[in-house]
């Protein structure tokens, strides 16, 4: 048993070290730019932002609206029974802006783009494209990993903030239509509950989740070696590990701040 725990611990630490190496190399490539391949790298980055950020807007809008409606419906019907009808704004801030906004955005990004990155890189590995790039003297870190990582981090940050705004809007729609909470009361309730820390924390979480998801998905994509059957296996691992890592980061960020 102790041996098993020790083995798993070492494996976990090695895995995290590999992610940290991948991430730090990408950061170095970002902050130490060379003229070489700048336009090509920028092209990959723009494509990644379009796919991860812009293309994800419709699905993010729908999920955020529905979530806002669900939460305000529950809060608006239950809280008045406890004499806390004025806390609807707090509930939106606590559940959506602090927690569910960044987390659900991360899950959307993992499901849409994280798996796509893992699959794409896995296929590139099997078909010899990664080796071909190396043989052309093209840095895998600079040309493949860094633009995907930066694109995902920026997209995740923007999508998280967008998700929060749309979810609050969804909450207002139901508050106005069904619960007859007037607009000014709703806005007042939300703004009163919202602090600068909340906004900063949602942004920090967006950045951290984006970095983690990008590193995990690139790592698993490049871990594919020789067979196409490895691609779905590594993609599944990338998805599960991204979810777990996002939740871990959430705990690490949230607990010290709000406990």
């Amino acid at each position: 048993m102790i041996e098993w725990v020790g083995r798993k611990t070492i494996a976990g630490a090695t895995y995290l070290a590999a992610l940290a190496t991948l991430f730090s190399q990408a950061v170095l490539d970002l902050v130490l730019p060379t003229q070489q391949g700048r336009r090509e790298t920028l092209r990959v980055l723009v494509r990644q932002i379009l796919f991860t950020g812009v293309d994800a807007l419709p699905v993010t809008t729908v999920i955020a609206l529905l979530l806002g409606i669900i939460i305000v419906t529950q809060a608006g019907t239950q809280l008045p029974r406890l004499g806390a009808g004025g806390l609807v704004g707090s509930i939106i801030v606590v559940t959506v802006i602090r927690e569910l906004g960044p987390l659900i955005t991360a899950f959307i990004v993992v499901g849409r783009s994280g798996t796509a990155i893992a699959t794409e890189l896995g296929t590139m590995s099997v078909t010899g494209e990664v080796v071909a790039l190396r043989l052309m003297g093209i840095s895998i870190s600079r040309f493949v990993i860094m633009p995907r990582m930066v694109g995902m981090v920026l997209s995740m940050l923007c999508l998280t903030l967008y998700f929060d705004v749309v979810a609050v809007l969804g909450g207002y729609l139901i508050a106005d239509a069904q619960l007859t909470i007037p607009f000014y009361a709703f806005v007042e309730s939300v703004t009163k509950a919202l602090s600068t820390t909340d906004v900063l924390m949602t942004a920090v979480k967006g950045l951290c989740f984006g970095s983690a998801v990008a590193a995990v998905c690139c790592h698993h994509g490049l871990a594919v070696r020789s067979s196409f059957t490895e691609v779905p296996q590594q993609t599944t691992r990338a998805m599960i590990n991204s979810f777990i890592l996002c939740l871990l980061i959430d705990v690490v960020v949230t607990v010290p701040l709000y406990l």
Binding site: R39, E40, G128, A132, L133, M136, I138
Partner: peptide, 25 residues
């Protein structure tokens, strides 16, 4: 190599152009 490794998301033209774009900007 035995696996030529042309990038599947690029046309043949862009594949052949890639080394020039990257190294001869």
């Amino acid at each position: 190599l035995e696996q030529p490794g042309l990038l599947n998301n690029m046309t043949l033209f862009n594949n052949v152009l890639l080394p020039l774009r990257y190294h001869r900007g």
